[in-house]
Design a protein around this nucleic acid. Structure first.
Length: 948
RNA sequence: GCCUGGGUGGUGGAACUGGUAGACACGCAGGACUUAAAAUCCUGUUCUCCUUACAGAGAGUGCGGGUUCGAUUCCCGCCCCAGGUACCA
């Protein structure tokens, strides 16, 4: 029989499922190995060709580890809460649970077709109440914990309460909000229960915090940055503004240092660690308080007479990494949202400031950070005083300073910072040189730390190293500042004004949050009539009837963010179906056995989201004694993304900044003010939009009008991430139908290095398919009858085999799967040329290939007379270097670095002999042209280079 | 803007630690088989110049410099593309 991939693949997939070939035990004599994939969000578009890239790589690795004698845990599940399902629910009215269920069924069918060796008995779904019960439980543990800096770990809030009861707030070193109170034990006891709760909330690891969001008044909801395009909502094109809102937050900053230090202990790609380091952004500097002028004047004079008991509203606090430049400060810039803006704005500046704030509200944070070209700002009319010399410093607002970032205020030193310099130039503010080594600060800032200080009061003549401690000592003495370590990372917002997420197990009493009872978990997501915000602007949960705790107390209405369920899921996989009958997320004994993930494969787009939050929760769970390891993922490999080709249409924006129903063709878009919108690649051919299909694409586009070029609407194209929200998804089903799963597996690996991103194309797939047919033919005669001989192999055959045994071993260990596929092709080409049909060669080759192409090898394994299904637990062949020994090498001979010819020379010969032999050679002489070589470089077994 | 990665033939890519650039495939061209097509097999295929041919010369790994006997690989400066940038997951 010719290679019948359809029958073969169906047969073995069924066999593996029936016999539970890949079900794994939580105990074994073999060493454990945990191979984990980042689980997918089950989108309505189905699995796309990008998902399997990582899954195939991890499956090859898992299968290889089994052949190497490990007890391998290789699970899969679904990150099934998320925005797209909810969006679909809003459009169609269908319950997201239902569509999610359907999507998962599609994913499962697609995954099964690819022949993965997952232990499906351990599947998890984050939207399953049996799963999110534990996500809620972890939230409750976080709420009940505080971070003790003394012990450098999280501890139960009870311990904090006990301390307050015995010693008050004295001696507590904790991570907490800025505004905690100072009190004695008696004062604590005298507080009402509500007052106590209010105070404790400032210490809890999950707490309520005011933060800025993208508010869309027309939709009555908060939008993700992702959903805001060019300042308007992607959906509907409505204006979006920045608004403050009370939200749940996680005190991840408590773990900043441990998250930083842990990076040195794990085997992750260096760039990824670097990204996390930069995200955490530890910087050492000083915080400095600039008193407000009016207050200081009331206090009776200059900066020297500063009042150390300054209340929060009469100074501006800044953080700086260059406290040495403090005498170069010529203005302060605070965020337009800064709480002092209304206090500082003088009557004369009121209009200007208000206009500027209105402008700022239209921009997203990203826009504000990204725009460094245009300088903008407004003067409040007020002044602050330099704490060291009492200099009057004007206070400005500008949108490049972000409120949620540090103190929301910066001291501007135009001579040392280019951004400040540009600002000073633009608004005609002075520039003061502060170091003698600074070059020409009239033309550009110079951030040097060299030289000695000038124009700098008592630090004049000092170096940087001398000035910093002197300044900090002085600031501390004046009560106007101190040394400080600051992190760029902010506490993580932990709430979404959405329906399709985990309910927060909290109710409110007297406006204060309280946990529900643990025995009441899971708090199941209630039914609602529509998945939209309420008329009052509350999240969709506000629509649920009787969504009340005991005594009619209201529940929290927001739900948990997408990253909640994925921040601990690898522990749930450890729990076998039997384990899951116990009332714990995973039994201690089980965690003791699996400990951590040995290999984690996933996209680098999760570098600072999922991977940081997971490490944070893991550390917390360890502090609480629930898990063993400080770090959850020992080794991590980033798979590159399979990118999609996206198509765009360009929506005309009217003068009010609102999206219209008019769309401009790509070639004409620059003549109008437009915003690009993704359009489904399936309704675009050769970049020409099918207008009729577009009208049906989304109901809001039904009456769309088009500005065409040459009678056609031409779409824009970009290579970007493949995702349903970008409407550029290509799925693997067609490929499997046409070529089979083994071809898909090999082809995805053959595409290039795992870590690299590349746009999807199917150009080379034929070659991979042909390779499998050639491999099949090695075992068969021309009539396609099995024809394998038991003859002894010859040297060339053994060489071919052992080359591939070693190559694949090396390749898999360094995750270079693409080069293995090429090597398999070379091997099969060689054996075909040798007409090799010897069992002793082919059977070992088959085992080596089996992790890559499990179906065809399983079939041939069985045809060779082995027990059905035993291939997965066979042994990887032993490499014997004796078969690869060479006695000659074709030395490339270069003249002046240019390769001229090859010479076969014995490898037993040492460098001087080789040199002599080469120089005597007649062909070499020809290139020397009678000249004597200046120098001859001989690298044994590598190269000869003659310099003339 | 900032952080991270990438850029090699018509295409995907190989060259693992500074040592033969283009392995292995796709595509394309020519040929064999066939009434024909598909499938299969064989040959060629970085570019430019030169040559009837054999052969030969030069250039070449995004661009411009540098280090080195030798650079796709190391260093400096740029350009372009992708991912992340805190409510997509």
């Amino acid at each position: 029989m010719d290679y019948q991939f359809r029958d073969i693949e169906k047969k073995w997939q069924q066999f593996w499922a029936d016999k539970q070939t890949y079900k794994v035990d939580n105990s074994s004599e073999k060493p454990k190995y945990y191979v984990l994939d980042m689980f997918p969000y089950p989108s309505g578009a189905g699995l796309h060709v990008g998902h399997p890239l990582g899954y195939i790589a991890s499956d090859i690795f898992a299968r290889y580890k089994r052949l190497k004698g490990f007890n391998v845990l290789h699970p899969m599940g679904y990150d099934s809460f998320g925005l797209p399902a909810e969006q679909y629910a809003i459009q169609t009215g269908q319950h997201p649970a239902l569509t999610t269920e359907q999507n998962i069924a599609t994913y499962r069918r697609q995954l099964d077709q690819i022949g993965f060796s997952f232990d499906w008995s351990r599947e998890v779904r984050t939207s399953d109440p049996g799963y999110y019960k534990w996500t809620q439980w972890i939230f409750m543990q976080l709420f009940d914990s505080w971070y003790n800096l003394e012990a450098d770990k999280a501890e139960p809030v009870e311990q904090l309460v006990r301390h307050f009861e015995t010693s008050g707030s004295k001696g507590i070193k904790a991570v907490h909000d800025e505004d905690v109170k100072t009190f004695s034990a008696e004062e604590w006891k005298a507080m009402s229960s509500n007052e106590q709760q209010e105070e404790l909330l400032k210490y809890r690891l999950t707490y309520l915090k005011e933060s800025t969001v993208n508010w869309c008044p027309a939709l009555g909801t908060v939008l993700a940055n992702d959903e805001v395009k060019e300042g308007v909502s992607e959906r509907g094109g409505y204006p979006v503004e920045q608004k403050k809102m009370m939200q749940w937050s996680m005190r991840i900053t408590a773990y900043a240092d441990r998250l930083l230090q842990g990076l040195d202990t794990i085997d992750w790609p260096e760039p990824l660690k670097e990204m996390q380091r930069n995200w955490i952004g530890k910087s050492t500097g000083a915080s400095v308080k600039f008193a407000l002028e009016s207050e200081t004047i009331k206090a009776g004079g200059s900066g020297a007479a500063l009042n150390p008991e300054l209340s929060p509203l009469n100074f501006i606090e800044v953080f700086t990494t260059r406290v040495d430049t403090i005498f170069g400060v010529t203005f302060l810039v605070i965020a337009p949202e800064h709480e002092l803006v209304p206090v500082l704005t003088t009557a004369g500046q009121k209009e200007e400031i208000e206009n500027y704030i209105a402008q700022t509200k239209k921009k997203t944070e990203l826009d504000r950070m990204a725009d460094t070209k245009s300088v903008s700002g407004a003067f409040t009319g007020s002044y602050a005083l330099n704490p060291l010399d009492g200099a009057r410093i004007p206070v400005w607002i500008a949108d490049y300073v972000l409120a949620g970032y540090g103190t929301g205020a910066v001291m501007a030193v135009p001579s040392g910072d280019q951004r400040d310099w540009l600002f000073a130039r633009h608004f005609n503010l002075p520039v003061i040189q502060i170091l003698d080594a600074q070059k020409d600060v009239e033309h550009a800032a110079d951030a040097t730390k060299e030289g000695t200080y000038v124009n700098s009061d008592f630090i004049n003549g000092m170096t940087y190293q001398e000035a910093v401690p002197a300044l900090i000592a002085k600031l501390e003495e004046l009560g106007a500042g101190k040394a400080k370590i600051q992190y760029r990372m902010r506490d993580a917002i932990f709430g979404r004004q959405r329906y399709w997420g985990e309910p927060v197990p909290v109710y409110f009493k007297d406006g204060l949050p309280h946990l529900i009872e643990e025995s009441e978990l899971p708090l199941v997501l209630p039914e609602v009539d529509k998945y939209l915000p309420t008329e009052a602007g509350d999240p969709p949960l506000g629509r649920a009837t009787d969504w009340k705790y005991r005594e009619g107390l209201p529940y929290e209405l927001s739900t948990m963010p997408g990253w909640a369920g994925s921040s601990w899921y690898w522990y749930r996989y450890m729990a076998s179906p039997e384990d899951r009958k116990e009332d714990v997320f995973a039994p201690a004994k089980t965690i003791e056995y699996w400990k951590d993930v040995d290999l984690y494969i996933g996209g680098s787009e999760h570098a600072t989201g999922h991977l940081l939050y997971s490490r944070f929760w893991n550390k917390f769970l360890k502090d609480m004694g629930y898990v063993q390891e400080e770090e959850p993922f020992k080794k991590l490999i980033n798979q590159g993304m399979i990118q999609g080709r996206s198509n765009f249409v360009y929506r005309l924006i009217n003068e009010d900044g609102i999206g219209t129903h008019v769309f401009v063709s790509h070639g004409l878009k620059d003549q109008y003010h437009t915003a690009p919108i993704h359009v489904d690649v399936n309704i675009v051919e050769n970049e020409v939009l099918d207008i009729e299909k577009f009208r049906k694409f989304r109901p809001e586009f039904e009456n769309a009008e088009f500005i065409l070029e040459n009678g056609k609407y031409i779409c824009g194209v970009e290579v970007e991430k493949m995702s349903k929200s970008k409407f550029n998804v290509v799925n693997p089903d067609d490929i499997i139908e046409r070529y089979g799963a083994d071809t898909l597996r090999l082809y995805e690996m053959f595409l290039g290095p795992l870590e690299q991103s590349k746009p999807w194309n199917t150009n080379g797939i034929e070659g991979v398919f042909k390779f499998l047919r050639k491999f099949w033919k090695l075992f068969h005669n021309d009539q396609f009858e099995l024809a394998v001989s038991d003859q002894e192999p010859v040297k060339a055959e053994l060489k071919s085999l052992h080359k591939i045994i070693r190559k694949v071993e090396e390749d898999i260990e360094r995750f270079s799967f693409n080069t293995s596929v090429s090597s398999f092709m070379i091997c099969v080409n060689e054996l075909t040329d040798l007409k090799c049909n010897k069992r002793s060669i082919l059977q070992d080759l088959l085992v080596v290939l089996s992790p890559y192409a499990p179906h065809i090898t399983e079939e041939l394994w069985h045809l060779l007379g082995n027990e059905q299904g035993s291939l997965s637990y066979a042994s990887y062949p032993q490499f014997n270097p004796a078969h690869l020994v060479e006695d000659e090498f074709a030395y490339p001979i270069s003249v002046n670095g240019k390769m001229r010819l090859n010479l076969n020379i014995s490898l037993t010969m040492e460098a001087p002999e080789v040199e002599k032999l080469v120089l005597e050679n007649a062909d070499v002489q020809k290139y020397l042209d009678g000249k004597t070589p200046k120098k001859v470089i001989v690298v044994k077994g590598r190269i000869v280079n003659i310099v003339v």
